[in-house]
Amino acid sequence: MKALLLRDLMLAFRAGGGFGLGLAFFLIVTVLVPFSVGPQSDLLARIAPGVLWLGALLACLLSLDRLLALDLEDGSLDLLATSPLPLEAALSIKALAHWLTTGLPLVLAAPLFGVLLNLPGPGYIWLVISLALGTPALSVIGTFGAALTVGIKRGGLLLSLLVLPLYVPTLIFGAETARRGAAGMDTSTPALMLAGITLAVIAVMPFASAAALRVNLR
């Protein structure tokens, strides 16, 4: 299992691995927002938590179609499926690798981008906490979408169509946590809900992903 994680991380960091693309995309979205809604700082401050959450979500989505498609192309998935590693574990590891290379950098960079959008002072800590709690769920749910569409040529757009509705609860509770944090309100309810969703998804979703992938491999 460690070997698979290390391999996926190594591949992401080598040339052509696409590490940093999600981060750059997140930055561009953040920069484009003031151009589209105007530079008034009070307006930006109000929408900053939601915009940052949406940007992070879209950045997570960006790299999902490479998650399994490349391994299918070069035959690695067939070989992994015949290896002693259960497919459920392999997919959990791949989701973890996706989070470490996409979600975690977003979490760490988010406060920086918060400055660009004039995020109010108490919002920073809650933005980081909500993203740290929520982005793992985005990676795990995204892995399920990737497993569903891995056999489909040019499945990228379909993948977005399938995955985005599944992101709704995570987005609602995540953005609500950040928004309440920024407004200095009590965040415990949405933060706990968000954590609950993430834990439940990590526990159950790999089974659905593995079932879908087995169908696609046969």
């Binding site: 391999r7 591949l11 691995g17 070069d74 035959g75 070989l79």
Partner: peptide, 28 residues
């Protein structure tokens, strides 16, 4: 069973040694 078919399951951005070490580790 060890299975080998038309595609070799190799990652082009890993070295020969890294590719082989990875599969060895997966199979313990």
């Amino acid at each position: 069973v060890a299975y080998a078919a038309h595609s070799d399951g190799l990652k082009s951005m890993l070295t020969v040694r890294e590719n082989l070490t990875f599969w060895a580790a997966v199979f313990g």
